[in-house]
Amino acid sequence: MILRPAKKMLLNSGDDGTRFIMLVVVMMSVLSTLAVGGALTLAHLRSTWVDAVAGHITIEIPASDGQGLVRSPDTLHEKATAAYAALSSTPGVTRVDILDRRDVEKLVSPWLGEAVSTNDMPLPVLIGVTLSAPNDEALTQSIRSKVSAIDPPSIVETHQSWLADLRRFSLILLLAAGGMATITIACCIVAVAGAVAARLSEHQNDIDLLHVMGATDAYIGQEFVDSVVRSVGGAAVIGTVLGLIFIKIGAAVAGEIQNAMLPAMAWKMADNLWFLILPALVTLLCYFAARFTVLRSLGTMP
């Protein structure tokens, strides 16, 4: 007579209810992973955009004067040189670049089209200024005063207005991604609670039997919760791994699309922790949902 190792007592872990819970959690974990991946990419993209713009000012010396008369190239050159000299000697300015005409032509070509010649077209002079500290209001004001003294119609663009729009837009996207992850996890919890309630009905006779034998609510509840945690934990890890595979495929596809505004899907190394936290969080929340459902149901028994 050989005694085989004892099995878990109450639940048959291979039943339909377990498979249903696992399937739901895998799908929800994939969606949560995609949402978190999207949120991290957006956060990375946002900081990339902000870093690229925040410490820079662009000065435009217009091609026409205040009365609408087109200025000669010599006048424009003279104003640009004076501005260059004034800005270069300003403390806090680390770099000044005057864009040559070809660079300006490149900038306007998307609006004019390749077929239109810009040879005889009056184009403004653009000066790129790099500051040692971003968002230095006093320095910006000093630059405005100096440029205005050299050429009153000149425009000093700090990019703050569209940077603010960009920040707002990316924040909305971030919130949407975070909201999607939250809703997905909430759906997962509701589905697990529902599945646990269904399993309680399915195992009602077994529960009654354990009750008759003197099993406490905590004991019976633990039987269910242990089973749920094992199923959900495994499913959450599988779902997260699948989600990461989808993100890798998406990143590979995005990497083939050359676009300066849309860098490939990427995030900081430390952000990878989110993908360890996610299955643990899903499992923990499902544990509490299962425990609450089971104990509430058992509490109705005599």
């Binding site: 004892a6 099995k7 007592m9 034998m213």
Partner: peptide, 12 residues
């Protein structure tokens, strides 16, 4: 309990 052996049923 149908999924448990005689041993596990008696051990409950």
């Amino acid at each position: 309990l149908p999924h448990l052996s005689a041993f596990d049923n008696v051990a409950l």
